Amino acid sequence: MNDTRPVAYGYLHVAPDADDNASWKLEAELKRYADDQGFELAGLFYEDVGGCFAAWEALTQELRQANAHHVIVPSLVHLTQHELVLEYLLDRLEQGWRAEVHELHPQ
């Protein structure tokens, strides 16, 4: 019997001046969610500059390399606040990498 849990990655936007405690709380929530849903949280990707998608690019590379199909975010706002960009990013995850996005706090 195979006890391997599906791999998931977390992605969050953290402002450079954000309170460390708030960031740690989000990390803990992502880890707890992954565990509760039966995922192995293999890593967290942090975007700290608005409009910069360096961590996003690293995440998508990791999804391909690990053949992973789950991304956990606190909310979709952590991807972007721009509706058209959000649609593009979700489409790339869902269609391009066949990844499912899980939201802790849907808005």
Rank of each mutant, 00 (worst) to 15 (best):
L104P: 08
E29M: 14
D3I: 06
W97Y: 12
A54S: 14
W24T: 06
Q81I: 07
P74D: 04
H69I: 13
V85Y: 15
L84S: 09
S75R: 03
H102D: 13
H78Q: 03
N2V: 11
H69L: 14
A68W: 08
E27V: 12
Y9F: 02
L90N: 10
N67I: 01
K25L: 03
M1W: 14
V73R: 07
Q65I: 10
A18R: 04
L12Y: 15
V7N: 00
T4N: 07
R32A: 12
V7C: 01
E87Q: 12
V14L: 14
A68P: 05
K31L: 02
Q95S: 03
L89I: 04
E57L: 13
R92M: 13
A55D: 07
W24L: 10
A15V: 03
A42Q: 10
H82I: 00
L44M: 02
P106E: 00
L84M: 14
Y33G: 08
Y9K: 01
H78S: 09
Q107E: 06
D36S: 14
E47M: 04
W56I: 04
L30R: 01
H13N: 05
S75I: 02
W97M: 08
V85L: 11
E87C: 08
L76T: 08
V7A: 01
P16N: 06
G51S: 06
H70D: 11
D35Y: 09
A54F: 10
A55K: 08
F39L: 15
G10F: 10
F45Y: 09
Q65V: 11
G43E: 05
P106M: 00
V49M: 11
R98K: 10
W97I: 11
P106Y: 02
F45A: 08
N2E: 09
A55L: 06
G10D: 13
